[in-house]
Structure formats: C-alpha cells, structure tokens
Design a protein around this nucleic acid. Structure first.
Lengths: 219, 219
DNA sequence: ACGAGATTGGAAAGTCAATTCCAATGCTTG
DNA sequence: CAAGCATTGGAATTGACTTTCCAATCTCGT
C-alpha cells in the first residue's frame, strides 16, 4: 500500500455481482484501449462493450484516469501471467527463441494489429500521465528482470562469459521486441519483428559460443 | 501525383504570405502532435500555437486528418534531411555509432520526452488511419534502406561476410532504435536506448571481425 | 425481515472539439 | 483600376464526451 497523492483510486467490489461487473468493465476497457488507444476509447464505448451504465464505471474506477491506471495494471499482470512458465525459464537460447516466437505467432494471428499491449500504452501515456508512466516502467522492469535472470543463470552456468553484461543484453532483447513489434505493426507483417528479435538472439548465441571457446568441454 | 481516393488533400499556398502561414501551421502542428500525440492535439491548440484562425487551417489542410497526413510527411522529410550527411555514410562501425549517439544526445536534451517523432506517430496511428500507416511505413523503409545501403557497401568491401543478411541487420538496428527510445521514454533515461543500440552495433562489429578472420589482411 | 451500504439506471450539466459558413480584406493580373 | 481568386477572422452549428447526481433496487449481516 503506497502513499497516494490526489490520484483517483479504483474501488474494489464488495459483492459477487459487483466483482463480475468490475471485471467486465476492466476487460472491455483493456480490449478497447489496446485496439483504439486510450484517447480513442470513450466511456460510452466501454459502456456499450461491457454492457454497463456510466455510473458503474465511475463507481468502480473514479474517473477515466483511474480506469486507465487499472487497465495498465491489468494488462501488466495478464501478460506476465500468460508467459509465466516461459518467462521463468529463459536460460537457454532455445528458450529465448521459443518465447519470442510465441509472440510472433500472436502477431500473425491479429495481423500485427495493436503491437504490444504494454508498449502501445507506454507510447501514448508516458509523456502525459506520470503515474501511468510509472506503472508502465514497472511492467517493463519486470520483463527485463525475467530475461536478465535467465541470462544470469546462463552466465553462472558458464554458458556466457563471466564478464558478460547481461543487463545490456536483456534491455537489447526487450528493445528488439518492442521496436520489432512497432515495425511489424506499421508494415502489417510479423517479419520485421522476427528479424529484429532473431538478430539479437543470434548475438547472444555468439556469446554462448564465445564462452564455450574458453571452456571447450564442460558438461 | 498519385491517384487519391476520397482522402482530403492539403492545398498549396499561392502567395508568399500564404506559404508562410501554411508553414507556421505545419510546424506548430508537428511540434504539438509530437509532444502531446495526435489525439491530444486539438485544432484550437494549433491555432493558438501558430497564431492563426481556424479557417486558415481548414483552408490549407482540409481537415484534421489532412493536417495529420501533412505532419507525417513533414516529420519524415525533416528527420531524413537532418541526418542526411550521416545517413548516407553508414558504412562503418564508427559511423553507425556516431549516428546512433547523435540521437542519444537529442534524447538527453529533451529528457527522453516524446521518443521518436516517427515512432510515436506510428504507434498512435497505424491501426486507425490506413493512409497514415502507409506514409509511416514509407518513412521507416527509407531509414531502413539507408542503413542497409551502408551495410551493403561494407559487405561489398569485404568488411562483412559475403553471405551476411544485411537486411536483417538493418531491421534489427532500426528496431533497437525504436524500442530503445520507447524504453528510454518510459524510464526518462537514455541509458536503455544506448544499451540496446550498442548491443546491436556490437553484433555487427562481431560480424566485421568474422569477415576479417577469413581475409585477415586485405587493405 | 430490516437497515446500511453496494449497485445500478438514466437523465442532465457543462465543456470542448471539429467543422462550416460568410463576410471582409488582400493580392495579382490583365 | 477592376475582377477574381487567395486569404483571413470569427461566429455559429453540431455533436460527443466526461462527469455528476439522484432515485431506485439489490445484497447481506443481524
């Protein structure tokens, strides 16, 4: 429980029905804000999509900013949870490739619409909504930490050179994912994403090879 | 002169004064849309900033979509022109580093606000405005072509292996730039951008080393 | 069953944006 | 200079959106 300033805070639901309503609103808002952007999503839009009245939205989320904040938190946790099994085991080249390819398949499925759920929100809100920016920074940090943790294990295991800057590699991979998704979104084709990500992973693979060269046969 | 559909087209100015007005509007709109996003920039905003009346904007650009399209074209050409001398000579590791570092310095100067002029527009408009998407895709394509062209020269010169996939490297660098700028924007710190870009350039440098290994002493 | 708080519907206020319109002024060309 | 088009100012229209408000209705513990 952090100290909050004047910011609006969303209220939890007390009853079962309320919980379902709140959830319905959140899901609808998340979907719409992803597909049309935050500014492009009006409260009436959310009302229609979630089949609720305006008062319900304002009851649970205070105002649009509160709803947006809730959507950010929702998307962050959802994306993290979806990838949890993979995210916790990014300690091999194959695992990295598998994880990134999973995202590529999703891109294909939606014709690259929307790009990254978090990235799109970040681009739209970072400069205008400081508290949103913090939430998004946290989401990216968790992602980065997951990658870095896997790379660190590889380094400890000797798959990467002892002096390898795994933090830089993690940032580079995250950037490749975000930038790749943006390029794919603009081109409506997942190829740029795949290329960008694969180049970075190739680079990591080269580092693995470099580590092997020093300790040729360890396992 | 391309075949246009129902799209609004911006009208050129006939008089000198008109030209200056049109320019003032364009510059103001570009700046505001960059700093606040397209949706966050209203026509009255542009009016105030450019010191013009509403009719002048509608006179020269038809409607907001037309103004947005003009801004996209404007930003594309401006960014390209700004970097022209560097862009045309991206045929060495040093040149690549210099070019990317130039952007990093700009990021520092604005505390990473706004990210990339083109990237931000791309993220906001790609899914909602098809013709904007095309314009942005073109801008990215020109950038990618410039990088690829430099890398191709390096390959022809023997600085890169003959079978090196320079298109993939170019996309990867562009993605690192875009993704890195996004991460830097969210974190209000240019470090992520620098790390992401440097990792990719390091990778290219490794490839140069690989090419040298095959033809040790050529020059 | 009763009362408090939770939840809901829907109207209404207030704001602001996009766009249109028309009248006025300026410039250019014959 | 006079007609004609370019340019400009500013009001008016229209519509949408955010948010508030109040009067129901519902739920739940006691």
């Amino acid at each position: 429980m952090q100290t909050r300033g004047v910011e609006t805070q969303s209220k939890a639901a007390s009853t079962e029905g309320g919980r379902r309503t709140r959830d319905r609103i959140l899901r609808a808002a998340a979907e719409l804000m992803f597909k049309q952007g935050v500014a492009g999503t009006s409260i009436p839009d959310v009302q229609r999509h979630a089949q609720v009245s305006a008062s319900q939205i304002y009851h649970y989320f205070g105002d649009k900013k509160g709803l947006t904040a809730a959507v950010i938190e929702y998307q962050s946790t959802v994306k993290l949870e979806q990838q949890r099994p993979l995210l916790d085991n990014l300690d091999s080249i194959d695992a990295l490739r598998e994880w990134c390819e999973r995202a590529a398949v999703r891109l294909d499925a939606v014709r690259c619409a929307g790009g990254c759920e978090i990235g799109s929100l970040a681009s739209e809100l970072s400069d205008s909504d400081p508290s949103a920016r913090l939430g998004l920074a946290k989401a990216f940090a968790e992602w980065q930490a997951a990658i870095e943790s896997g790379l660190t294990r590889m380094r400890e295991r000797g798959d990467l050179p002892p002096d390898e800057d795994v933090a830089a590699l993690a940032v580079a991979l995250l950037a490749a994912i975000q930038g790749g998704m943006l390029l794919s979104q603009v081109n409506q084709d997942a190829t740029p994403y795949r290329r960008a990500v694969n180049v970075v992973i190739d680079h990591i693979a080269d580092r693995v090879a470099a580590a092997r060269a020093v300790r040729p046969t360890d396992h």
